[in-house]
Amino acid sequence: MNLGEELINAISPHNLFNINIFGLSIPVTDTVMTTWLIMAFLIIAAVALTRNMKLIPAGKQNLTEWVVEFINNFIKSNIGHHWEHFSAYLGTVLIFLLFANVISIFNIIPSAEELYKLTHLSIFEKMPSYSIRPPTRDINVTACLALMSIILTLFSGIVIKRPKAWLKSFAEPVPIIAPFKVLDYFIRPTSLCFRLFGNILGAFIIMELIIIVMPAIFPAALSIYFDLFDGALQAYVFVFLTSIYIAEAIE
């Protein structure tokens, strides 16, 4: 395959298998499969790190407490008074995005065709090819995350300030900016979605091109910037911007 076809093959999500329940046929793409892997890893890690907790922390409990304190301080410094309601969800999104953006450095499973050529077992002949790629390079995932952020902002504004004060806050400080404030509710999730999607997709395309050209030591050195730093920064910026929007809605 030439370069363009290989690249398009890497970017677009593939159908792995279909789940047939209740008469519906639900397609499962490799994005969903990678998300399940991340969820399984995080749930098992959360259960394993919080068993046998002692009052004086020792060992891995130190790490857990450091992570939770970091997230709490970060949310408290941005939102202010009502931070306990939000720190659980925003911390979860932060940890999920940190793993999801970075996960393409774990792409060490050989694909099904290569396994078939190595071992000639018939089970590998018909398996769909699957490699671990960041799920946020699919715009569905980032659109869902942005949609959840804006719904959280909307409901936090309506519930914490009572509905009348929330409606009146559209007209502050000058009544003429009310349509712009309404438009903000559409522009902000779009920009969140495309910022995350564009950054991760761009970094992934550059890494694929480098791997196609020179698969030796060069990708490892460059993937420190493109995969790790870029992914971590975009996760941080996503949660930071969501907390700023919530703080502005609560005031």
């Binding site: 999607f197 997709l201 910026v237 911007l241």
Partner: peptide
């Protein structure tokens, strides 16, 4: 943080170019 926010507009242009070509 400022650099990551300012880079967003460049990323929008890149995404549109990518969509056009693909």
């Amino acid at each position: 943080i400022g650099a990551a926010l300012a880079e967003a507009t460049a990323i929008y242009g890149f995404v549109i170019a990518l969509l056009l070509i693909l």
